[in-house]
Every structure is written in C-alpha cells, then in structure tokens.
Design a binder for these strands. Structure first.
Lengths: 336, 336
DNA sequence: GCGTGACGTCGAAGCGCTTCGACGGGGGAA
DNA sequence: TTCCCCCGTCGAAGCGCTTCGACGTCACGC
C-alpha cells in the first residue's frame, strides 16, 4: 500500500504538505501542488479511509435508512436511494445502506461508532419512534417525510397535502362535483405513514372547500382489490366523476376495472394520480399526475446534510410544491 | 466520546485486555470478561470504526453495486440488496451502496481506500468490463450472475439456463408441442446481460431436445408491448399452447392480452414464468413459476465473501437449482 | 532600515484501536 | 523438586492520516 509518506518522499516534501495540498486547508504553492499531484498519479496513491476518519473525525459516509415495509412502492424507494447516492458522490461522500429492520439500534450504532457522519431517514411515520433518538444524536440527520412534530428536526418532502389539494382543485376546476380518493393499502394508514395521511388531509380539505361530495378508500395493492374498490365506488357514489389515485401498483388495474364496468376514462370519469411520471405515462390512458420528485428530494436532502455538516443553519422544513402534469385521463365533466 | 482506555480504567484492566475480551482473540478469564462487559454497558462504549479499521485493516464494510439500468426489474434488485444487508449484519458487517454509474472507478476507489473489505457485484454482463479489475483487486469479490468467462472469479446465481429448460420440460411434459419465450426488453439482450441470455439458451436447448416448435420474443416492459407480442404470437404460431415469460412487469398484461384475444389460461394456453413468487401469486390466474431466490442468493453471496475474507477457499461457481412451483396457469394440452 | 504580516512549509503530536512480545504464576510431567 | 508450558494480562509500538504551532522568507509600509 502506498501511503502519504511515500508520496511526500517522492515529491520531496513533508507528509503534512501533501495533506494540505490535498485538502486545500492551507495555501500551497502552485509548483509544489503540481509536483505532489504528479507523484500521487505516478504512485497511485489513495488515502486510507480509516486513517482519514480517525484523524479528521469525518468518515465521509452518510447513512441511508430505506424502508422495506409492506405497502410501500419499491421503485420509488430505489429512485430515492439512487439519487441520494449520486448526490452524495458529488460531495465526495459514500452511502451506507441500513434497513428499517435495524431500527433505532442500527442508527445508534453507525452514529456512535463514527461509521457515518450524518443520516438520511426515509419512510417517516407521523409518530416515529426514532424521532427522540434522531434529536439526541450528535450527528446531523435529514428526514425524507414529515412526522407530526418535526420541531428540532430537518425534514424534506413533496408537499403531499398540497398534492392532495391540487388534484381535487383540478377536478373541481373541470366541473366535477363528486370525487373519491383511492389511497394506499390500509396498513400504511394504520402505521401512520406521514405522506399518505397528508394526501388524505389535503384531499378532504380541498373537497370540503369546494363543496364537493367526497370519500376516501384505502386499497390493497392488488388488481383484485382495485376491482372491488371500483365496484364499491360505483355502488356507493353513482354520481362519481372524479378519482384521485395514490397507490402506484393499482393505478392501471383500477382504470381497467372502471372501463370494464362501463366507465370511459376520461369520458365518464376523470382520473388524477400522485405517482412517478414513468408510471403515469406508461398506462394505456396516460394519467394526469403529480410526480414524486425523488431525484430532487434525494439531492436536496444531501445538500441539507452537507450544510449542516459544514455548520450552516438550514430550514427545519422543506416542502416541495407539487406540480401537476396534464395528460389524457382528465376532462371536463360531461353535461349532466 | 468514551474510548477503550476509559473502559479499561473503569474495569481496572489494560486497554489491550479490553480489546481481547471484545475480539476473543486471546483467552480472558470469565471474571474479567464480565467486569469489562459491565463497564462497557455502564459507560456506553462503542469502538470507533475508523480507529478499528486503521489498526486492524478491516473496515467490516462490504460494497454492493446495484444496477440501475433500463429493463431491469427494480423490486428484485431491492430484494437482493435487502438480503445482502441482512446477511451482512449477521456477520457484523455493514453495506456500502454503489451505483452502476460509478463503474470501475467506484470499485477501485472503495477498494483502494480500504473503505470496504470486499465487494458484491450485481447485474453482471456476459462480457463485463469490470471483470479484469475484479480479478486484479486485492479484495475479494462475489458476482451475482455469471459472465462468459467466470474463471478466477466467484459467482453465484440462480441457474437460469436450467430454469429456462425446466419451464420447457414442464410444458413438454404436459403435452405442449409449440412454445414461445417472451423475454426481457431487447436492450437487456443487446447489453449481453448474462441471466437473460442463459434463459434463452436453456429454453431453446430444451425445446430442441423435446422436438418442440419454439420462438423467442424480447419484449418491452409495457402493457402495449405485451399486447403486440400476444397478437404477433397468435399470428405467427397459431398452434401455440405454451408460453414462458421472463419479464416481470408484463406477466399480467400479457395474460390479459391473451385472454382478450380469446385464449383462456390455462384452457387454451399454459403459461410459466421466471419471476418472484409474490408476482406469480398476485396475478389473476396464479402463474406456475420458478422463483428468483433473491434472499438465498444474497445470503449465500455474503457467506462466500466471509469465507474468502477468512482465508477459506470457496467454489468459483455456485448455481442454485431452479424450483418450479405449480400454480393455476398450466394444464395438459387439450386434445387436438 | 526595520517591523509586520502573509505565505509556504515542516515536525511532531495525536486520533482510538489492535497486536506483538513479554512476563508472572500455577499446574503437570519428569 | 525442577523444568516447562500454558493461561491471563500488560505495555508499547504502530496503523496512516490530519492538524497545530512554529519557522524562515519575502514584500510591503513607514
């Protein structure tokens, strides 16, 4: 293994000079810097991560806690993970993968052993048991998602409440008077998963504000469940003309079910969804949707952490405004 | 931060004794060990990962390279990742997440800086550019998947060739004489992704061996594409009665398409698939399938690495035998 | 002409842990 | 009884890097 002293000798300087040339924490003359760079290249020097971490008390590693619970949509999680890794690399950091399963002990472990400098936590519950720990930890963290009491924490997410509202506003604007929300699987709400709850809040608030008749239906992520919900909706709300879907896997089956029940989309029924763009575009009838900006959220989460690591204050809450993309699944309500 | 010297002082022993008590690398009397354990608990001691890595030249971190290419099925990747993390934790290791994007440089970086002790590489191509690097690296690695020349590497995967064969054998055993393989998206084959290729090999070999008429159809992962393939199959192979699907997202749409074209499954058409069990079971007509044993592959990959890290020799190739689970989508061919 | 910084570099002291060699004491073999 | 060896423990020497204080040099202002 080639070490910093080898580089120093080769370049005819002291190890500390090499270190400063690398970190830029003290001025080094252009000429010396060049010489050191050449030696590094020639010898193929790579600083030892452990030694660096020990001496600088910075590991340049971030922890990412990914959920693997029932009812969450895996591709979205993966998108977050990838965007976090990519963003972290831009800041010369790596990402350690933790599963939800490890729970609080896992967080404490990687933080206390100084394996990681900071933490990113996904799939936050409204009353997440990890919150006290995260507040107490001596390492900065960012939550992707909002708990009920985000005080003292740094959180970022799509503004799901606004997303729920926006879907309804759009339907109301198109003249729809009876709307329904087909939501995530029941267990997601039972757990108090924040983002799902907030969609419901927004949906309901906007429906009330606009004087719409509305209902909310959690739904398992299976085509069979989608069909049953469709049938139930027709039965219970025969005047229904607007549907908001917040459940990726059943978006397509649900639309199929409606059509098989004789409802054309968007002729008889307008559908909006909160889901990744790829999905909304991939359906037979492309769906008007609000995307989950996973790339942006991941990148911004990392930026927030970097700022915190740098000692800069950051806002506690970052809510990304929803943006609705008009596609083929929405239309004005047909004259009654 | 509480360190090993604090524990030592508190327990009335030397730091090295604490270290040995923790690692078990030298005998320590039961009594002393108890005392040390108590001190550790009381003080909340956690060994500093960087210091440990520096002194022992072991970071207890594994790198996992996940693919994020077009055409791969994300949930399966996630399953692998989770099972790797879980298995790694059982061996007191953590997992660093690398994206394919980082490529060879990323592998070299984490290996050369001693950030990780060993590497797990997914989504191996038949002629993967990373192979020479992996062979040359001073750290052990395991590939999930088989390249064309696996010599000098440690590889593990489901035996996809046998899986392809098994699907055909099963269909042949049920009396089917004309079969088709609906495969992964074309780009997967173009890239030479090993597992996809091997399914084709196995499928073709078994079809020939059994004297079946057969054809192979790569297929985009969209319902529209599924429908087009279904129509094409009916047109080109009107006598078709057996289909093997190796493309998770279109399994259900494809069956729907067949039924809409008037073919009942399994009445007119028997379908087998290579896909996760959850998917096979979630379809309206549960599909006879060969599961991708991601949990087992991930766990075994980690075991292999641990053995290699321990200096034990391991077999170069580990092929997991496919196991076919009979479900509702297969039946004997109707009398002609 | 001399004090004063700023600049560029060096040396040394750790960071917290593991590990190697050494050592005292007790028990078994001779 | 003597010798040897093993068990349990200690002390010290690093692991490879960063960082702090110090030092010489040079340019500048007065």
């Amino acid at each position: 293994m080639v070490k910093i002293t080898d580089v120093a000798r080769h370049a005819g300087v002291s190890p500390s000079t090499v270190s400063y040339a690398l970190s830029g924490k003290r001025p080094i003359s252009e000429e010396t810097r060049q010489r050191i760079a050449a030696s590094i290249r020639e010898l193929g020097y790579r600083p030892h991560a452990g030694a660096r971490a020990l001496a600088s008390s910075r590991s340049n590693v971030l922890a990412l806690v990914v959920p693997l619970r029932a009812g969450i949509h895996v591709p979205v999680v993966m998108q977050f993970a990838v965007s976090v890794v990519t963003a972290a690399r831009r800041h010369d950091h790596d990402v350690l993968l933790l599963t939800q399963e490890e729970g609080e002990d896992g967080l404490r472990r990687v933080a206390d052993t100084a394996l990681v400098d900071a933490l990113i936590v996904m799939d936050v519950q409204l009353h997440d048991p990890r919150l006290p720990l995260l507040r107490a930890l001596d390492r900065p963290s960012v939550l992707i998602g909002f708990p009920a009491t985000p005080e003292g924490l740094t959180c970022i997410d799509l503004d799901f409440k606004a997303a729920g509202e926006l879907c309804v506003e759009r339907l109301a604007g198109l003249g729809h008077r009876v709307v329904a929300l087909v939501g995530s699987p029941p267990e997601v709400y039972v757990r108090g998963t924040a983002f799902a709850q907030r969609v419901v809040e927004g949906f309901t608030a906007a429906a009330d504000r606009n004087g719409l008749a509305s209902s909310v239906h959690p739904c398992e992520a299976s085509p069979g469940a989608a069909r049953r919900v469709a049938e139930q909706l027709l039965r219970e709300q025969p005047a229904l003309t607007g549907v908001v879907v917040h459940n990726e896997p059943i978006l397509e089956p649900l639309i199929d079910a409606f059509e098989q029940l004789g409802l054309r989309v968007p002729g008889d029924l307008s559908v909006t969804a909160i889901c990744p763009d790829e999905l909304a575009e991939g359906v037979r009838v492309p769906v008007t949707s609000i995307a989950i900006p996973s790339a942006e959220v991941g990148a911004r989460a990392v930026e927030l952490l970097m700022k915190k690591l740098g000692g800069t204050d950051v806002p506690e809450a970052t809510l990304l405004a929803p943006r609705l993309t008009e596609r083929a699944s929405t239309a004005c309500r047909a004259a009654p």
